[in-house]
């Protein structure tokens, strides 16, 4: 773990990506604790559509709400959805991938063909379909995004798991009579930590984007609560009058995705033994 942090600090894109992600996490935590400059849903009637100033750093929106506060809460909301959905899809995807690789035959065929079908649909479209069926809301967004990204984890896990399964140390474990659970967790899972870490980081970036897209379409977070996508959608008609309404959430989404992608790239380099020596 300490090695991982040291590696991140030494890696150029790891430094930048790590800093951005750390900043976002701090902001998200603050927002959830309620530490924002103003109440994000309180309306200051006189201060409608004010450009950025000393009192409102990022200006105010059409209801006179503080954009910075709404942005912080929006980041908090987007992160909550992203982390929850990626967490769920990582657990389910890993379990499916591991069992598919381990049992093989029919189970492998059924699971992987199902995943292929899910992957054939564009992510947002599939999420839209699910929300259209169950109805919008934060919980639905989490479930929909988790559902969409499960096949990716299944695939990422199944490949390496198949090759690890045929390694001698797994055969050795069988000769000791080790239980299936022990072999799957200690021998297979432990050796999958590296590819999974990278995949989780990258999936966080995508699900951030998917969440923003769903909210933009009005199917994710519901007003008056705040989310990055929702802020973008609300600013659409006022683009020429109050560009700050569009610019700040836009930059926040872009920077967040950039941060996770840089971090993911860095982790991939650090955890891959082939490039690790070149960086050391």
């Amino acid at each position: 773990m300490a090695d991982l942090l040291r590696g991140l600090l030494r890696h150029p894109s790891g430094r930048i990506g790590g800093a951005i992600v750390a900043l976002y996490i701090i902001v998200a935590v603050l927002a959830h604790l309620g530490v924002t400059p103003y109440d994000p849903i309180q309306q200051f009637r006189i201060d409608r559509l004010k450009p950025p100033s000393g009192a409102h750093w990022m200006g105010t929106d059409m209801f006179g709400r503080d954009v910075l506060s709404r942005l912080m809460v929006g980041i908090g909301q987007s992160f909550l959805v992203a982390f929850a959905s990626v967490g769920i899809s990582a657990v389910i995807g890993t379990a499916l991938g591991l069992t598919a690789a381990w049992f093989g035959h029919l189970w492998d065929g059924v699971v992987m063909r199902l995943m292929d079908i899910l992957l054939a649909f564009p992510a947002v479209l599939l999420a839209l379909l699910i929300i259209a069926v169950i109805g919008p809301g934060t919980g639905t967004s989490v479930m929909a995004i988790a559902f969409v990204y499960t096949p990716i984890f299944t695939r990422v896990v199944r490949g390496p798991a198949l090759s690890i399964k045929s390694r001698d140390f797994v055969d050795a474990a069988r000769t000791f009579g080790s239980s299936r659970v022990y072999i799957l967790t200690r021998h297979l899972m432990l050796n999958l930590v590296a590819p999974l870490t990278v995949q989780v980081t990258l999936a966080l970036a995508w699900s951030l984007l998917t969440e923003a897209g769903l909210s933009f379409l009005g199917l994710g977070t519901q007003p008056p609560a705040s989310s990055l996508g929702l802020m973008l959608s609300e600013s659409g008609n006022l683009m020429e009058m109050a560009p700050w309404l569009l610019v700040f959430p836009g930059i926040a989404i872009m920077l967040g995705i950039l941060g996770f992608n840089l971090l993911g790239d860095a982790l991939r380099d650090i955890l891959d033994p082939k490039t690790r020596s070149a960086l050391a």
Binding site: R167, D168, F169, D171, A172, A173, T175, F176, G177, S178, S179, Y182, R186, H187, L190, N191, V193
Partner: peptide, 28 residues
């Protein structure tokens, strides 16, 4: 019990020696 040909492949690289030695006993 069996000892395999390739000592680089027959030990799980992510487990320490204590866990490796404990495995056959735990399995029983």
């Amino acid at each position: 019990q069996m000892v395999f040909q390739n000592p680089y492949a027959s030990l799980n690289p992510r487990l320490n020696v204590e866990s490796l030695l404990a495995e056959p006993v735990r399995a029983g």
